[in-house]
């Protein structure tokens, strides 16, 4: 056997191995699509992935069952808002902690770092009463404020600081020479240079908000105010039995657009993680 063929065989083995490994990652999506097009009784009774009859009506029934479009929009606007605000506030704070010397900055940093890993479960109970006092119960405010100022916001600040630390200072000094204010340097010089970090942090923050489950569960009552994760868990009939076919169809509607965006932007996403130094 020549070295060449040997290498070829190794390569084929690798690919077969990876394909096998990919099954549990890919099959759920295929099964979801198949289930989304089946009738309620069919979801389990038939093992076939191809529905015996295609029920496109599942997709319209979702919208009759609950205000799914509104819920979709809720998730989307909250995630966009949280991401935008987090990027702005976290990059500003991160910039100050990396570049500006001021007494107390070390203390602020320490405070933030100690909260870096704290899950929201730790503070959810007092936050429940705080939100009640502020009149934010059954509104979207907790879903915006808690990620922004909780561990996710802190994480974003910390990552931005790490990125700015690694950024060469020269360009900013040139900006100072041109008479830009501190804010001007941050906004006009540093921020444009930190696009990879911003997009990596932005992606993480967006996903965090998009996936948020505990907070909506605790803070939101009205079905019109539900976010997608809550809405997906809410496809049950009168007596609490899941409406599998609708649940799967709704899940498909929630997942597919994200998958498409991801596939289109996958190279940039991986690159931004590589360039941002989100690795410590």
């Amino acid at each position: 056997m020549t070295y060449r063929t040997q290498q070829k065989i190794t390569r084929i083995c690798w690919i077969i191995g990876l394909c096998a490994l990919a099954i549990p990652f890919v099959f759920p999506f295929i099964w979801m699509l198949s289930g989304a097009l089946k009738g309620q009784a069919d979801v389990f009774s038939s093992a076939s992935l191809i529905p015996s009859k295609i029920h496109w009506s599942n997709f319209s029934e979702i919208f009759a069952y609950q205000p799914f479009a509104r819920q979709y929009f809720n998730s989307l606007y909250i995630a966009v808002l949280v991401t935008g605000l987090t990027l702005f506030l976290a990059s500003m704070a991160g910039y100050a902690l990396a570049r500006l010397r001021f007494s107390g900055s070390a203390l602020v940093l320490l405070l933030l770092i100690s909260a870096l890993m704290m899950p929201e479960e730790v503070t959810i109970i007092p936050n429940f009463f705080l939100m009640k006092k502020l009149g934010f119960m059954n509104t979207h405010m907790p879903l915006i404020l808690l990620p922004l100022f909780g561990s996710q916001g802190v994480m974003a600040t910390f990552l931005m600081r790490q990125f700015f630390l690694a950024l060469p200072k020269e360009l900013e000094e040139a900006g100072r020479m041109d008479g830009l204010s501190r804010f001007g340097v941050y906004f006009k010089v540093a921020l444009p240079l930190s696009r990879p970090a911003l997009s990596a942090v932005g992606i993480i923050t967006f996903l965090f908000s998009w996936n948020l489950f505990l907070e909506p569960l605790v803070f939101v009552n009205d079905i019109e105010l539900f976010t997608l994760p809550l809405a997906l868990a809410n496809f049950t009939d009168t007596y609490g039995l899941p409406l599998w076919h609708l649940q799967l169809a709704a899940t498909a509607l929630a997942v597919i657009p994200m998958l498409i965006v991801y596939i289109l932007a996958q190279r940039q996403i991986v690159e931004s993680f590589a360039l941002s130094g989100v690795k410590g």
């Binding site: 606007y77 966009v80 119960m137 979207h140 009205d222 019109e224």
Partner: peptide, 14 residues
């Protein structure tokens, strides 16, 4: 504006 409207409508719905 869109965002404000969305937040606002969410806030006053109750």
């Amino acid at each position: 504006r869109l965002i404000c409207a969305a937040v606002f409508s969410g806030t006053i719905a109750t």
